[in-house]
Amino acid sequence: MSAVGREDDGWCVVVDVLELPRIPDTTSLLASYEVRLDQDGELMEYRRVRRYRRGSADE
């Protein structure tokens, strides 16, 4: 989890996941997903907002 924010109808969470492991690790592909949860913590929606190579700097 890289970000959490409260919204009117629940929560918005950004989760970073390993999508494609490679050797060496620095070439693995990761992705950030924005996840929206209702006030009870139930999943409402999710979407991939970014895909990047491990070790790459933010632009």
Rank of each mutant, 00 (worst) to 15 (best):
G10F: 01
V13A: 00
S2M: 08
G41T: 03
S2W: 02
L30T: 08
R48W: 07
R22L: 08
D9Q: 13
S32G: 12
S28G: 04
L29S: 14
M44Q: 15
G55M: 01
R48K: 12
L18E: 10
R54N: 11
S28N: 07
E34T: 06
L43W: 06
G5M: 09
G55F: 10
A31S: 09
V4D: 04
D38C: 03
G41H: 04
C12I: 13
R51G: 14
E42D: 15
L43F: 05
Y46P: 02
D8V: 09
D38W: 10
R6V: 15
R48S: 08
V49P: 01
A3R: 10
E34N: 04
Y52I: 01
L29W: 02
V14Y: 01
L30M: 12
S56C: 06
S32P: 04
V15K: 03
R47G: 07
M44V: 14
E34V: 05
V15Q: 04
A3D: 14
G41C: 03
R51M: 15
S2N: 11
V49A: 06
P21M: 04
D8S: 15
V49G: 06
L43I: 03
V14N: 06
E45Y: 09
R48I: 12
Q39F: 04
D9M: 05
L30F: 12
G10M: 02
D25S: 14
G55E: 00
Q39H: 13
E45L: 11
P24K: 07
Y46H: 14
P24F: 00
G55D: 01
E45A: 12
G41A: 03
T26A: 13
D38K: 09
R53V: 10
R54D: 11
P24Q: 04
V17R: 13
D25L: 14
V13R: 06
L30R: 13
R50I: 02
L18F: 03
E19Y: 03
I23P: 07
E42L: 11
V17K: 11
G5I: 04
E45V: 08
M1A: 08
D16Q: 10
R22S: 10
G10I: 01
W11I: 03
E59L: 15
D16W: 00
D9W: 01
E7M: 09
I23F: 07
R36L: 08
E7A: 02
A31Q: 07
E34A: 06
S28F: 04
V35N: 00
V15L: 06
E45H: 09
R50T: 05
V35P: 00
R54P: 00
V15Y: 00
R36G: 00
D40A: 15
R54I: 01
W11F: 08
V15W: 00
E42Q: 15
V17T: 13
V35R: 02
Y33H: 05
S2E: 12
G55H: 07
L18T: 06
R22M: 10
R47M: 02
Q39T: 12
M44H: 12
S2K: 11
D8Q: 14
R6D: 09
R54G: 02
A57L: 14
G10P: 06
G55T: 03
P21C: 05
I23Y: 07
G10S: 01
E42M: 10
V49F: 01
L37V: 04
G10W: 04
R51V: 15
L43G: 07
P24W: 00
Q39E: 14
I23H: 12
M1Y: 02
R54T: 07
S56W: 06
S28R: 08
M44C: 13
A3L: 08
